[in-house]
Write a protein that binds this DNA or RNA. Structure first.
Lengths: 331, 331
DNA sequence: ATCCGGAATTTGATCGTTCAAATTCAAGTG
DNA sequence: CACTTGAATTTGAACGATCAAATTCCGGAT
């Protein structure tokens, strides 16, 4: 295995200078077409690829985005994050970006990782997930000057009119609203809601969609932790009194489904959230988050509509976020 | 934001030379303790971190491992890969390695990505998943000289005595054997097996565990594609004739569970594989793959028991693989 | 006092790329 | 034909770290 060719080797072969080769790769439009072709030919013949480290050193850019990998919590919803990361990787690749994953178990540890990656220049930007009100990570990132987008809005403030930073999210209320409307149209008036205990931004948001679509008028509102057995127990009490149940997560929906089945009402329409493989396997309707669109939105906020370098959009009112409308999958 | 300090700044501050600072970071043992402390103090005061690009350029190493991210196939088993990647990221971090993910939809596209990452020096090694007999990726990797480990053995040859490359895997047969033994001990003699159509290395391996533990003697052997509805249909025919069902995947197990429930035998012991959240939610027993151990094994093959640079173990007979014994989770 | 040898530290060179400035080229103008 | 102008191309320097070789330091033997 001989050592790989450098820009100099290509230049020699094409009868031009280093810089012209570099220009062909980075600013093709300023190179005369005939020259450009000659250089391309040389590149192909030698199988040349720029060494990332050298380029990164000179340009002080890594063209890499860091993203946190949640510890396995046992919850169903990890799937959404996984699909998001996958979509992000694909979109990033199309824009000449790479995706580096890092692990951390606490927000503090995550800040330490981010400091590593940022100061050593390994990432140009980060994407954080599962933000909450008063999240130390967002403050640190803003102070530190590392461009970033959060998947999940910065609950607590008016995050649309006065955003603290860039964010992407799924419009949970719109999702449960779709589910509720579908239930009202096809199942009956008594549409209940099974959600999480109050206080989580995401959960409250999803409940809002049900409430504003008329759910409160006829159906009960139940609460359980995100656990199938607990959901089953809670749901069991109302199976006879509802025509349908809208749930804040697939896990809750599975619990409700188990309760319905035991009560002999297996056909009771139940709507989950996240459209996980489990919901699909059980034949439950579910709200699909469309992680692909979220990923595209995140990159757009970080890099502009078509750019191939990180150039975050300013966090101005109304334009600092992407809110994706989810889609109900009926089964 | 002033520009970040370099090794020179630290040296100046500590009253030593560049190289000594470098030595403190890379070969602390050759630096006199007093000097070492002085340098460390300077590093802390300035908040210095080595610039990865510069180091990578000089050392011709990236300390990064590339791993493929599967496209979302809709299957339950993605969870295992996700947990594997998470564990890999944690272990890698502890050894000073980073994990870069890349996306590809076909083996050919994956080879193209690997060529990119390898030739541009962005990764020092790769981990590929879902290998099959005659996989073009392994041949390419071997020819190209990029160190790698496959998650999944190179089915087809005698991969233990005459391994073509390094690999890690979970002992599927051992897993179904555990499940079968448990069923025989607690449920009854008639233990059936619900697997995939013959021909997939993984599936055949899992069936083998059931067969060799005595399953064939008393229970039926069924086949379905990895789809809950199909599994349900197939299982429905034998619910009355078995005391337990061992399945090749959680998705099959869910299908079987649905069939059992409809037939009024909801309590029929059913064993899945992968221990996905869905199985947990439904209260099904399942074989847990222990992706954490697989990840540790992969790194050990690539970097030795404690090393912090990529130095793959030679692919010799008997020592070129790590086969993890899975664990049955009883519910 | 001088010399020796290993440990500790410093110096000079280099990795491959792109930036910034300088140079050459080609076409048009007076 | 010399002269301008803008486009195309080349040259020299720099990014920040580590390697390899050279140098200094220091205690012990002569």
């Amino acid at each position: 295995m001989s050592k790989s060719p450098t820009v100099e080797d290509v230049a020699l072969r094409a009868g031009v200078s280093r810089q012209t080769v570099s220009n062909v790769l980075n600013s093709p439009e300023i190179v005369r077409p005939a020259t450009r072709e000659r250089v391309h030919a040389a590149i192909d013949e030698l199988g040349y690829r720029p060494l990332a480290a050298a380029r990164n050193l000179r340009t002080r850019r890594s063209s890499t985005i860091g993203i946190h990998l949640d510890p396995y919590a046992g919850g169903v919803s990890g799937v959404v994050l996984d699909r998001f990361i996958h979509a992000l990787t694909e979109h990033a690749g199309a824009r000449g970006m790479r995706v580096l994953v890092y692990a951390a178990r606490t927000p503090e540890e995550e800040i330490e990782r981010l400091a590593d990656l940022s100061d050593s220049g390994e990432v140009d930007a980060a994407i954080i997930t599962g933000t909450f009100h008063g999240d130390p990570r967002t403050k640190w990132l803003v102070d530190h000057g590392l461009p970033f987008v959060s998947f999940g809005r910065p609950w607590g403030e008016d995050d649309v009119a006065d955003p603290a930073h860039l964010w992407v999210d799924v419009d949970g209320a719109a999702g449960t609203a779709q589910a509720t409307a579908h239930a009202l149209a096809h199942a009956g008036d008594r549409v209940g809601f099974l959600g999480w205990p109050q206080g989580s931004g995401t959960g409250d948001d999803r409940e809002r969609g049900w409430a504003r679509t008329g759910g409160t008028q006829h159906g009960p509102r139940l609460t359980a932790e995100d656990d199938a057995q607990q959901a089953k127990a809670v749901a069991a009490g109302v199976i006879g009194e509802v025509d349908a149940l809208v749930c804040a997560s697939d896990l809750l929906a599975i619990g409700a489904h188990l309760a319905a089945t035991e009560a002999g009402r297996a056909e009771l329409p139940i709507y989950g959230f996240d459209n996980t493989p489990a919901a699909e396997a059980l034949g439950l309707s579910s709200v699909e988050q469309l992680p692909e669109q979220v990923a595209a939105g995140a990159l757009e906020l970080l890099m502009g509509p078509t750019g191939s370098v990180v150039a975050p959009r300013p966090a101005d009112a109304g334009t600092a976020h992407v809110l994706v409308e989810p889609r109900l999958i009926v089964r």
